[in-house]
């Protein structure tokens, strides 16, 4: 490679370098411009976010001017709202608006999702007897409990005889002959945790079935006293023959109930619930 060629090469390189430098310069300028632009955008945005404050200020200024004009007119000066009062007012308004919307939303949804509290239990009873749920009625008059008793009847339903099966037209709750079965929701106190709620199915004075409606007993210990094997002691008992169910290990009389050892508390609660049913059933005026 000759010397001349070398220099020319170097020249070319220099030119190239210059080109590069120029380009860099241009890019830098471009960047600067962009930066300036974004800054401007940022400023505009910030201003936008300050709009509320600005509006406040303008409002305040207008109010000021108005007040000054009024004083010039010779009227008494009106007290303008101070800044803190305005803040508080704004808080109140925002909260109120949110609350009103929330209330409206909840009202609508509540209307759309209204549930009859008794519907579930009525359909359960209807499916238990395999009758239509129209024949199952709530019967407040049979909810009878001893005053101040901790175990009581929470709810009572009756199953009416089907239309046509009774002599004179449609069956009614008031007429005991029309009633096919009575279902008590009995709450028994004295359980290990809280209370035990049982559904007791009674027809023709006899307990035909018992199911557990709600309970919180310990699995494996207390739950033994809620098993079918334990509850079946009560099934088949004629309620009009029994004074009260009592704990007994002989198990000869109908009223003798053998408690489950280790689950005494749950057994007691079940027994209390059944005694509440007994009381309600035997104290219903004119039923039998």
């Amino acid at each position: 490679m000759s010397n001349k060629e070398k220099t020319s090469n170097m020249d070319i390189q220099k030119v190239k370098v210059n080109d590069l430098k120029m380009k860099e310069q241009e890019m830098k300028e471009q960047e600067l411009k962009e930066n300036a632009f974004t800054e401007q955008v940022q400023e505009v945005k910030e201003k936008e976010s300050e709009n509320f404050d600005a509006i406040d200020k303008i409002d305040a200024g207008m109010a000021n001017l108005k007040a000054m004009a009024e004083t010039k007119n010779g009227d008494e000066p009106k007290r303008k709202l101070s800044r803190s009062t305005r803040d508080i007012l704004k808080c109140i308004i925002v909260l109120t608006v949110i609350a009103v919307f929330a209330g409206a939303l909840l009202g609508t949804i509540n209307y759309l999702t209204y549930v009859d509290a008794d519907a579930a239990i009525i359909s359960e009873i209807a499916s238990h007897y395999s009758v239509s749920s129209e024949l199952v009625r709530k019967d407040e008059s049979r909810i009878i409990s001893q005053d101040g008793a901790k175990s009581y009847i929470e709810d009572c339903f009756v199953v009416l005889k089907a239309v046509g099966s009774v002599g004179d037209g449609t069956p009614s709750i008031g007429n005991p002959i029309d009633v096919d079965a009575i279902i008590y929701r009995a709450v028994g106190s004295g359980a290990y945790s809280g209370t035990v709620e049982l559904l007791v199915f009674v027809s023709d004075d006899v307990v035909t079935d018992i199911t557990v409606y709600a309970q919180e007993e310990t699995k494996g210990i207390g739950s033994k006293a809620l098993a079918v094997s334990h509850l079946s002691q009560y099934i088949g008992v004629n309620l009009s023959d029994v004074e009260s169910f009592v704990k007994s290990n002989d198990g000869t009389a109908d009223s003798d109930i053998e408690f489950i050892s280790g689950a005494t508390k749950t057994s007691t609660a079940v027994n209390n619930a059944l005694n509440a049913v007994l009381y309600a059933y035997n104290n219903f005026g004119g039923a039998r």
Partner: peptide, 30 residues
């Protein structure tokens, strides 16, 4: 941007409580 800083917690609780109640009512029904 609407909720003032001072009452933001009550406002949040109000909003959250509304949705929780919605969930509750829907679950109870369905």
């Amino acid at each position: 941007r609407v909720i003032p800083d001072k009452v933001r917690i009550p406002a949040y609780v109000l909003i959250i409580a509304t949705f929780v109640t919605v969930v509750q009512m829907v679950l109870r029904k369905f």
